[in-house]
Amino acid sequence: MKIDVHPNTSLVVRDLQGWYAESKVIHGMNFEVHEGEILTLLGRNGAGKTSTLRAIMGIMRKRTGSINFRSEELINKRIYEIARKGIAYCPEERAIFASLDVRENLTLPPVLQSGGMTDAELFQAFPNLQRRASSRGTRLSGGEQQMLAIARILRTGSRFLLLDEPSEGLAPVIVKEIGELLKKLKQRGYTIILVEQNWRFARSVADRHVVVEHGQVVDTFTADVSNTDVSRVQRYLGV
């Protein structure tokens, strides 16, 4: 299969198929992510957005096709091997550990590559986490848990982030904070795939949008979408 040769391509997904047990949820995804951009996967519930992130991370084990990251094939790699290539994942459910306090949650991921944020930088960026460092992880508010889930992967030095609906269920002011954070990360050269259903949030941060339906890519837009594009997106999202 011909691989796209955009000079800055970081991740190329080709003909990706994925299954949960016997049920197929990804039906031949094709898209690529450029170095340093924020790409959103848009689509309705059950379209296959989260599954795509889980397939890239290796958490969805049964998958075929090609996931090429910086010229390395990931399709047969295990989760921890993929993580060590510099990809980090923040799941929708945030997965804050109840048996660990906030500090333990934050410092659990080992530093894999240099250039990650230090604990001091993270506490500066997320002062709430420092204040509540010795609370159980799951005692935090939803917004704080989301901050913690993002903060802990910023320690590792991984610069390719998979973020699954970071805005979900949060107050508008916190969504705005997360948006600011993502823009800062982009300035620092991070590459981000963002799964979103919140179109306004997605539009405010992303460079490009990929629309997913029934486990396939059905459309792609750049950030400077025209008004006709917007109505198309809204039709896809059913809003």
């Binding site: 295990r78 993580a83 994942y89 799941p91 080992p110």
Partner: peptide
């Protein structure tokens, strides 16, 4: 801490690069 965390959610612990 790795053990306790993996007890709750092994996939996420592995996604931090832990074998």
């Amino acid at each position: 801490a790795y053990l306790r965390a993996a007890n709750e959610n092994p996939n996420i612990v592995e996604s931090f690069g832990i074998n």
